[in-house]
Design a binder for these strands. Sequence first.
RNA 1: CGGGGUGUGGCGCAGCCUGGUAGCGCGUACCGUUCGGGACGGUAAGGUCGGAGGUUCGAACCCUCUCACCCCGACCA
Length: 575
Amino acid sequence: MLAAMRYSRSFIPTLRDAPADAEVTSHKLLLRAGYIRRVTSGVYDYLPLALLVLRKIEAVIRDEMNRAGAQELLMPMVQPGELWEKSERMEKYGPELLRFKDRHSHESCLGPTHEEVICDLVSRELRSYKQLPMNLYQIQNKFRDEIRPRFGLMRGREFVMKDAYSFHADEESLAAEYKNMFEAYTRIFTRFGLKFRPVEADTGSIGGSDSHEFHVLAESGEDLIAHCSGCDYAANVEKAVSVRASTSCEQAALNMVETPGVTSVEDVADFLSVDIGLLVKTLVYRVNGGEHDGAIVATCVAGDDQVQEIKLAHVLGADSVEMASDDDIASIGGITGFVGPQQLSGRVLVDMRLQGATGLVAGANQPDTHVTGLDITRDIAEPEFADLRETRAGDVCERCGGMIELSRGIEVGQVFALGTRYTEPMEVIFQNQQGKRSVATMGCYGIGVSRLMAAIVEQCNDEAGINWPLALAPFQVGLISMGRSDAVRDTSETIYRQLADAGIEILWDERNERPGVKFKDFELIGLPFQIVIGDRGLKDGEVEIGWRQQQRKTVAVADVVNIVLTELHATEANS
RNA sequence: CGGGGUGUGGCGCAGCCUGGUAGCGCGUACCGUUCGGGACGGUAAGGUCGGAGGUUCGAACCCUCUCACCCCGACCA
C-alpha cells in the first residue's frame, strides 16, 4: 500500500468552492478535498485519496467478517437472466435492474445484489448438512439503476457493497448466525467511531422475515427512525409500531354538513372548528402486485396521522401501493376531496387507532359534503382493522410505555433472515441428518461501503474540512515544509524518510506554496496529524507537531520521529 | 415517471427581460517582489455560451425541438 507521498507528485485536485450541485456536507467535502469526481449521474471516480480510505474501511469489515467465521469470495457483476427468472425477480425487481443483451442476444443484467448467483453456486456444491452452516461474502461493485441518485456517494447507482450470504440446515442455525452477524456489525460500526443505531426494519424487495438496519445518525439521513426513550426499541418508521390514544368525542347522530370547496383535513378541521384528530382521513390506493393487483382500496387514519404506505402494502400482500386517480376513486363510489368510509364498494381498511372511535368527521362521498357524528363501529359496513399509521414523535412505546422519538439516519447496513425465499426457488437442497432432502435456510447481510465513507464524513467534519478518525485517514501524518531554505528541505526530507520507513503513512507537502495554502489543504483533506518544519523553529533545532485543528507544540528535531510514533501509537491503542 | 430548476473557460457566477465587440472573482502559465494561516504587481493562455433547427442584416439573448445535470416525491446498502 502507498504509505508515503510527496504532495507535488500526487493527484489531489482540491477546490476552493464547492460545485453548485453538491447539497450535503459529505458530497461537498469529498468533491472539494479531491476524493471523488462525478462521471455520470450516480457514478463516481474514486480518486487516490478516496481509494486509500475505502481500502481502510474494507480492511476493518474484512477483519470482523473473517473473525465472525465468514469466508470471502468474489462473484461477477454481470449475471445471466435465467437466474433471475428462476427466482422470479426478473419481473419483481423492476427497472432498477439494469438489463441488457449480449452479442448472442442472451438476456443479462448488472448485479444489484447476489442472492441468485450465490444460491446457484451453493446449490451445485451443497450435498450434506455436514457442509452447513456456511457464510460467504464479497466486497464488490453493485449497480442499481436508482430512480433518483443523489447526495454524491450517499445514493449512487454504482456503489461498493459488502454482501454476505449464509446457509443453514435449520431455523435455529440461521437465528444464531443472524445474531452473530448482528454482533459483528455492531463491532464494525463501533470501530469506525460512529454514532449509530440498529433498528427493526422492513424487508423490502429482498423479502424474508426478520431484518434490522444499522443507521448512522445524521441530519442529512434519508430515513426516519423511531426509537423509545425508555427502552431499546428502535425501528424504521416504515415498520415502527406505537400507540397513541384515539381522539374521540361523544357519540352523536350522523349528520350531513355542507363544506363547499373544503377538502384538506386541515381546512375541514378549521371550517368546522373541530380538533384535527377527530377527522377521518380517507385515502384511496391502487394496489400493485400480489393477489389483489389492480384493486382499489380505501384506507382510513385519524386526521393527524399519516398512512404508512409500506405497512399498507404489507397488509395487502402487495409489492407497492400508489395513490389512486380521480377515476379510480369514482369507481368505488368516492368523490375526490370528499371521500369517506361509508358506502364505498371496495375494501375499507381502518387504522387500529380509530377502532371504537365515535363523534368523528369524515367525507360524505357527496360533493361539498362531510358527515359529523361518525361512529366507526356503528357506521362503517365491513371495516378491516390494521396498523396503517406512521409512528410520530410523542407516541407511546408499545413495549414499555415510554415516549417515542424520531431521528434521521443513514442506512449503512442491513441484516436479513431470509428463510427459504431464495433457496426454495433456486433449489438449494441438501441431505439432512435423517437422510431426507431438505431446503436450506438463508440469511443475507449487507454493508454499503462507499455510502459508509460518505456517512463517516457526514459525522466527522468541521468548518475546515474532513476530520477523519486516525484509523481511516488516507495518510496519518501531513508534513508541511515552510519556505524553501536548504535546511528546511533537508530536515523535512530526513523526517519524511524516517517516518515512512517506520511504516507511518505520510503526505509531505513540499510544494512551493504559501503556508496558508498548505494548512488549508491538509485541513480540508482531513489529515489527523501535522508536522510543521520552518526556518523559524529550525534555528533553535525545533519543529512543530500537533493534531489537526489543535494547538501545536515544539519538539527538538532529533526527537520528532520518536515522539510522533509514540503519539500515533498511543492514539491508535486508545481507539 | 410526475412536478420544479439549471446549462456561459477548471470552480463559483454576471450578461438573457430590452438581440449588435463574451465579462467578473478564484484557479492555471510565465516574470518580478513576497513567504508561519488561502500574498501583491505585471503579462498571458483558456469559451463553436449544452446540441440541432428556426426568426433576423445580425442570436449567449427571441421561438421550436433535443440532450445533460440538479432539486422535490415513489426505490435502497
